[in-house]
């Protein structure tokens, strides 16, 4: 789904070309896996993991960082999770950069008064420890608004948040709100009107049991017109996510390779 957006993908590790070739064959990897055998490129990026002493197997590995790089070679955005057990999903990248979610990802529609909100995940499935994307598309009937930030304490900023224990960390960004002078309260406050859309990310705990799971959360807002202000609301939602079984990819590959050579693993 990355390539469909005109974006190429490439991975760099300190593995030998032979290891990468076996890995690409076994997992049908269609993009370049680059071999930085002496970690020279990893060093040139300044991301060598220096915590790992010479002599240890992992000596020479990088801190896991993903860069979105423009055609001119400049960094557009960095994706990283400061924990080696966590990774950002391709679907989260595609959702943030191109606004496209997987076709099979569930979308729920919430309605209250003049507001309709569609909430969905970037993908229908993920591994424990991955960072997924999510989006919320808001649509307000004419004459109504909800609030952005910053706001005085008495008002409710529009937000989407998950409260499931499977989630370690989350972010949600909305576009900048537009200032609106309130005729009744004589205040100018940041608001959203019409249709707008926010994108967020959520980091899944590691480890988690495989199988179907439910991620739940709330959309919070307060809808007002020029004459009426409704009470603040919190609409609950639930989204299905399939947690994939953890694959110890490389171990099974090594076992197979050594079996075919008649050696013991």
């Amino acid at each position: 789904m990355i390539e469909r957006q005109g974006l190429r993908i490439a991975a760099i590790s300190y593995d030998s070309q032979e290891v990468l070739q076996n890995f690409a064959l076994k997992y049908q990897i269609g993009f370049p896996l680059l071999s930085d055998r002496d970690s020279a490129v990893i060093r040139s990026f300044g991301i060598l993991n220096t915590n790992i002493a010479a002599g240890l197997r992992a000596h020479g590995v990088p801190h896991p960082v993903e860069y979105l790089i423009a055609e001119d070679g400049k960094v557009v955005r960095k994706y990283f999770v400061p924990n080696y057990q966590h990774r950002v999903t391709a679907s989260a990248v595609v959702l943030r950069e191109f606004g496209v979610a997987s076709d099979d990802a569930q979308v729920v529609t919430l309605r209250s008064g003049a507001l309709t909100v569609e909430v969905g995940l970037s993908s229908a499935k993920a591994f424990a420890g991955q960072e997924l994307g999510f989006f919320a598309k808001f649509n307000l009937e004419a004459g109504w608004h909800v609030y952005g930030a910053p706001l005085p304490e008495a008002y409710t900023t529009t937000s989407v948040s998950f409260d499931s224990p499977q989630i370690v960390r989350q972010f949600f960004d909305l576009p900048s709100a537009v200032p609106l002078a309130d005729g009744v309260l004589k205040e100018t406050l940041p608001v959203y009107v019409g249709s707008f859309r926010g994108v967020g990310s959520l980091l899944l705990r590691f480890p988690l049991d495989e199988g179907e799971t439910i991620l739940s959360g709330h959309v919070r807002f307060q809808q007002c017109s020029e004459t009426i202000c409704e009470a603040p609301e919190a609409l609950p939602f639930k989204l299905r996510l399939k947690l994939e079984p953890f694959m110890d990819a490389t171990r099974s590959m090594k076992v197979r390779a050594s079996q075919s050579q008649g050696e013991s693993a």
Binding site: I2, E3, Q5, G6, L7, R8, I9, A10, A11, I12, S13, Y14, D15, Q17, V19, L20, Q21, F23, A24, I29, P32, L33, L34, S35, I42, F45, I47, A58, V61, P62, H63, P64, V65, E66, Y67, L68, I69, A70, E71, G73, V76, Y84, A90, V93, A249, T250
Partner: peptide, 26 residues
């Protein structure tokens, strides 16, 4: 790359850019 072809930033990048992933090991 895994096939032994020499790759550079220029020939890895698509019309909308490149997602370059550094990872520990395969």
């Amino acid at each position: 790359d895994q096939e032994g072809r020499q790759r550079s930033v220029a020939n890895l990048t698509g019309p909308n850019g490149l997602l370059l992933v550094f990872h520990r090991s395969a």
